[in-house]
């Protein structure tokens, strides 16, 4: 359904080491994403999924190793310099501006483009509104006063407002009701079909596997698998995640699409990444 990847590598991480203070989270991550591909990064809490994304977005500094975007070394570039290259980052917490309206949030999403091409922004924001008619209805409403699902849409809309070539999206399913999750999935599948390069982090394996064609599985700051999802079954995934047989059983037992495979039921939900 999506155009086949062209073979051009648009994101390339080589031996990336990163962390916070004395705590090293990534121990040499290698990852490459081709243009038009839809790749998911999976792993347990603390495996380094979100940190990998933040390194790619420029929000967490890389200690050693390199990051290339579109063939250019951007390792030392701050996040604001990566946006004009065509990167849009969508954090797990969404980080909308709660006391600004829908319209103002979108305007800030298109800030870089608006500086030199307001007409193009106008057509892009029209496109966003046609994808999310709900946002069009609520353009003067404050982002913080909207429902979780609407905020998820606004976050995607704000990322699209910069007309990106790569979408880095961290746990789009987090905290969403199942029905809303389906909407978000449909939207992301649509973007994938249009040829947008998507790199996704997910805890919710079943959600992620319905979207991506390739997976990178992280275990304790290292990529232990990179390849097509078609070659993976639940037992293999559980093994790669490092959760062993216990979860493998849970995985195959569960059919509900909201199951978060990486999290045994007993442990309280706590995000480390």
């Amino acid at each position: 359904m999506s155009p086949p990847p062209t073979g051009e590598v648009v994101v390339e991480a080589r031996e990336v080491v990163a962390g916070f203070g004395a705590n090293t989270v990534l121990h040499g991550v290698n990852l490459s994403v081709e243009r038009g591909a839809c790749v998911g990064i999976f792993g347990l809490n603390g495996a380094g999924k979100s940190v990998t994304m933040k390194c790619l977005a420029g929000l967490v500094p890389v200690r050693t190793g390199t990051i290339e975007l579109f063939g250019q070394d951007v390792t030392a570039e701050p996040p604001e310099a990566r946006v004009p290259r065509g990167v849009a980052y969508l954090p797990q917490a969404r980080q909308l501006f709660p006391r600004l309206t829908v319209e103002q949030n979108l305007r800030l999403g298109g800030y870089v483009m608006r500086r030199h091409d307001k007409a193009r922004y106008a057509s892009i924001v029209d496109d966003v509104y046609s994808r999310f008619p709900r946002l069009a209805e609520r353009r003067t409403q404050l982002a913080g006063s909207m429902s979780g699902g609407e905020q998820a849409m606004l976050a995607i809309g704000r990322a699209l407002a910069s007309d990106p070539q790569i979408l880095l999206i961290d746990e789009p399913s987090a905290g969403l009701a199942p029905a809303v999750m389906d909407d978000v999935l449909a939207m992301l599948l649509q973007l994938r079909a249009e040829g947008l390069t998507i790199l996704l982090v997910e805890q919710n394996i079943s959600f992620g596997f319905r979207l991506v064609e390739r997976a990178a599985i992280l275990q304790r700051g290292l990529v232990v698998y990179e390849g097509d999802v078609a070659h993976l079954d639940t037992a293999r995934v559980a093994e790669l995640l490092g959760v062993g047989r216990l979860l493998s059983k849970q995985l195959s037992a569960s059919t509900a699409r909201t199951t978060t495979a990486t999290k045994p039921r007993r442990t309280p939900k706590k995000k480390v990444t």
Binding site: V83, Q95, Q104, L108
Partner: peptide, 24 residues
């Protein structure tokens, strides 16, 4: 103005400003 709006937004989320490409 976009710049004025970015100043207001900076008061709400500084990191978001940066990953949207706006110099904080």
């Amino acid at each position: 103005t976009d710049f004025g709006l970015s100043v207001v937004a900076a008061a709400q989320d500084q990191e978001a400003l940066r990953f949207l490409g706006i110099p904080l």
